[in-house]
């Protein structure tokens, strides 16, 4: 997770990316949401030894990144966060799955290495696609799509409220933390003995703020009903094209076809 002070900036930079204008930005949010879900399910469905079949799937996020001009460094930063768990589970394969799968120039490659690489590949692909969805689609558009997909408004509203108030409460926590560190120099983080008061204080402040926000929302006529924006198009053609291509790539191993063609 990012730090107390960088998280807010991360969210803001993501929001400004989503405000951009490109072919991908202009796609209907519903189409992007559905294709992202389908893509992730497809990627995860690959057998752990089927690395060559998985590789052509990289084409989709790469095209999306270049068409939407999403900066690569941002993607890499997010990947670092996603990696540790996948690395832990993946590295285990190298040690526990030692049967030789094949040899290249007398170097034996084990099934463990193949599955390690496919786990890493899956992680990179899924993280990249989700990130592209968020960096090309406004959160409010995604929540509109969720309501249209019959997700209960109470849930979508809570999700939106959480998202909206993260930066506010990060600021609150940041102010408290700055005050704390000024009074306790040479301390890294908050001393464990002070955590109760610190977090408790933050909680009480948050609850008080929730009361004030509720009053303000009530003044503006809030009645727990989700008001979706203008009706969006679904983008059936885009969904059909992408899902069709993904299905074809799921059952035809393009890498092997290309390899066979070249080697012949």
């Amino acid at each position: 997770m990012p730090s107390l002070f960088s998280a807010g900036a991360d969210i803001r930079s993501m929001e400004s990316l989503a405000e951009g204008d490109s072919v991908i930005h202009r796609l209907p949010p519903m189409a992007k949401l559905v294709t992202t879900l389908v893509y992730v399910v497809m990627v995860v469905s690959f057998n752990r030894y089927n690395l060559s079949g998985l590789i052509p799937y990289a084409v989709y996020p790469i095209i999306l990144i270049s068409l939407s001009q999403t900066p690569y460094n941002m993607l890499l930063k997010r990947l670092v966060i996603a990696m540790p768990f996948a690395l832990f589970g993946g590295a285990a394969n190298i040690f526990f799955d030692r049967d030789v799968a094949f040899t290249i120039a007398s170097i034996a490659v084990t099934y463990g290495v193949v599955s390690f690489l496919s786990i890493m590949m899956k992680t990179v692909l899924t993280v990249a696609t989700v990130l592209i969805l968020i960096s090309t689609t406004r959160i409010s558009d995604i929540s509109d799509s969720l309501v249209r997909l019959k997700v209960p408004p109470l849930f979508v509203l809570s999700l939106m409220m959480t998202y909206r108030y993260i930066s506010v409460l990060l600021e609150e926590a940041g102010t408290m933390y700055t005050a704390y560190s000024l009074r306790s120099p040479n301390v890294k983080g908050v001393k464990i003995g002070d955590m109760g008061v610190f977090v408790g204080q933050l909680m009480i402040r948050s609850l008080d703020r929730a009361e004030r926000i509720y009053a303000a929302m009530k003044c503006r006529g809030f009645n727990s009903i989700y008001h979706a924006g203008d009706s969006q198009t679904v983008g059936v053609r885009y969904i059909a094209c992408v899902c069709g291509a993904l299905l074809v790539l799921r059952f035809i191993n393009l890498s092997e076809l290309v390899g066979n063609g070249v080697l012949r």
């Binding site: 998280a7 909206r164 990060l170 890294k188 908050v190 703020r209």
Partner: peptide, 15 residues
């Protein structure tokens, strides 16, 4: 919503 954001902020406080 605000408590969700609180959890978020709280998880950023390292002890």
């Amino acid at each position: 919503g605000v408590m969700g954001a609180f959890v978020f902020a709280m998880q950023m406080i390292n002890f």
